[in-house]
Design a protein around this nucleic acid. Structure first.
Lengths: 226, 226, 226, 226
DNA sequence: GATGAATGAGTATTCATTCAT
DNA sequence: GATGAATGAATACTCATTCAT
């Protein structure tokens, strides 16, 4: 039973929701347009009318999910004036919270989109670059705060940022697969690792999370749609 | 055009070589058995005769590449008596060297195999578990060496190992994509990040690589075939 | 060349018609879905869209032909009140008429479906059971009419019914292959054989067909389509 | 482990044995030359060397099994001097005994060979003609014995013979599928049906089997090979 | 004589995509 | 605006058959 007339924006959202789920769970190639149309509750030609082709649909999905993720992080990080470690701590919690709440979207971004060549890889590269740039700038800020001298070489900082982002991605998967690991714990583990380093941890000198703000974790409207 | 007669073992190796390349570059679904057979220089039925099915072929590829990777790392790490940071340093260099030399194999292991569900995910899970277990044990050894007291909680150690492995994976991709980053540099960046931590780095207290052995990086017979 | 748009039911009938012909003449394995689609004047994907798989298609064909045959017989037999030999005589004429008019359907039911294992054999077993049950009940009725005492053992009756049905099947093939043998003649031969027995025939005591009704043989709308 | 050197005749017999089994159980199309070669314990090229092609192999199988069947019947029938009903009775027992002992051969002759078009159908037609001719001549003999006058028309006799043979085939299948039905019982059922007719049976005037000869049922060397 | 190595030619099935209404 | 009807192009997999040794 097909749903009755609806404004285009709503229909399109339903299609994208269905697509995220299908792509996230089955993968790009294994997901068929039939599946997606059925899950969205519309006919296949309508999907084509609105989203043009499978490639365009997948690209639209990637963009929407990428945007949602970066906005979640941006919202979590807080004002630019905070100290670097505090900003990172906030951002990581937002990141782990978001990936936990949108596993299909995370799967699309982290697994599916990277595995199927151009033009999707480029979308992901852009997303990653944005995040890496943010982290890079945080590291630079931390160096400034510490009056470090001389500066770390640029490429070294880039590598550190890559490492940090990779560690976060890995922990997001791990938290998603391991019962009972909260976003907060994942973030704490990563802060320790990144900020204090294993060396300090061995010496029992961990990084200490700042006292918590009053409210709950950065609000997100709701869990995964669909 | 009939392919020259060859002993089965040789042909099988050629097929696996072709498969690594094709799967690594195109992905599991997009790689067709026709492509692989052609690249291997044989007819499709022969591929089926020897490797049974696309699924079996992909599994065989995963296993071969996984084995090659773990053996390269194991060989690189050196004797068990070395200090933990030295073992890690050695292992990382071997890892980055291997992934740089076998980009298709690395793509299969890191991207393709994880994206296409069971039974491939299980193979990769096993591989990753092996590596994570090794890193976990290194961290435990480091703690012992540092006479750390009290012990880090088990789950915390697991998370740290996940983070470290994820960082390494990420840096392998980065090194593969960035002109002029050597395995040694990638390993050094990660050692700094992991061992000293960003905090120490800010304070200009980096981890110091041990003096280098005489010869070049751990020998590997040859680069990717095909 | 795009086939003209048609309602699904019509197209489905065309496909089944083409399938009966192809399966009946070439056999299940030798008939390719390409052949059937071409004969039906549609593309292969449409056949799959409507009939799902070769197995399902063949099953649908068997069911349709089985139903047509049993209904032809049921219609031919006439009211339950008739004497047993009269019912048998009517039923046999209907049977031979139908098999003569639908040789491909008869080939599917009698030859192809039995030769290719489950699940087709089960369909045919059900059909045959239905017919054998009908004959069995006729024999029982004849015994009642003759006030036979004691009853024939159940297994003996089953064997007789099998024999009669087998004889009918064989005569259907024979009539189909032999120029100039009418359904009526085949039915008469079988009635003689079955009802009088060779012994009586030798003694010149044949079974006598009842006077014929006015009209022609039981009407059937049309011959095989295609 | 391949068997060592063997005389050609023996090897060929093994291949035919394997082929009967495979064709009988799987059907002509579904049986692969690989299966047959493996079951025969020889390499595929050897099968081709001896039997030439799948078609030739199947034809050879049909001929061998047809010959075995007709010889078993001929041996069972006994001397030409016996009364017609006695000859039929003997022949039927031999037939049901043989089909029960060689189910795969019976399946090849009765099901598989008829279903796959020329040239196999011709082989079966020849076999059937031979049997029908024998039965026809028996019926003629019975008529002579009964001094029947006038003669039955030739086509009528042909039809009766077809019916009788079809009934026998059907009972062979039935006996093969029904637990506890012996060759003797099947033959008795058919003699009753054919000789006395249902009409006489209803009147409790069955055909009476002649007293049994001393020895056991017509000897056959052994059950199905392979 | 016997076999391991190899393939040409199919076969069922699927999917993204487009019309005609 | 929305959809039922339709297909071109691929894809995994199989099999009878043949050489080279």
């Amino acid at each position: 039973m097909r749903a009755k007339r609806m404004p285009r924006a709503v229909r399109e959202r339903q299609m994208l929701d269905a697509a995220v789920r299908t792509f996230g769970q089955r993968g790009y190639r294994a997901a068929s347009m039939d599946d997606i149309a059925e899950l969205a509750g519309v006919s296949k030609p309508l999907v084509y009318l609105y989203l043009n082709s499978k490639e365009d649909l997948f690209t639209a999905v990637i963009r929407r999910e990428a945007r949602a993720l970066t906005e979640a992080i941006r919202a979590g990080v807080g004002p630019a004036g905070l100290p670097a470690d505090r900003q990172l701590w906030n951002g990581l919690r937002a990141f782990f919270t978001h990936t936990a709440r949108h596993p299909d979207g995370w799967s699309v971004l982290h697994l599916q989109a990277r595995t199927h060549g151009e033009p999707f890889a480029a979308e992901i590269a852009a997303l990653r670059e944005e995040i890496v740039a943010f982290v890079t700038q945080l590291i630079a800020a931390a160096a400034r705060e510490a009056h470090r001298d001389p500066d770390l070489p640029e490429r070294e900082v880039a590598g550190l940022a890559e490492a940090l982002v990779g560690a976060a991605e890995s922990l997001a998967d791990w938290a998603g697969a391991t019962e009972g690991v909260t976003a907060r714990q994942a973030a704490a583990t990563l802060m320790n690792f990144a900020w204090a380093g294993l060396g300090d941890l061995m010496a029992d000198r961990p990084w200490t999370p700042p006292e918590e703000e009053a409210g709950p974790a950065p609000a997100e409207p709701a869990a995964q749609t669909g």
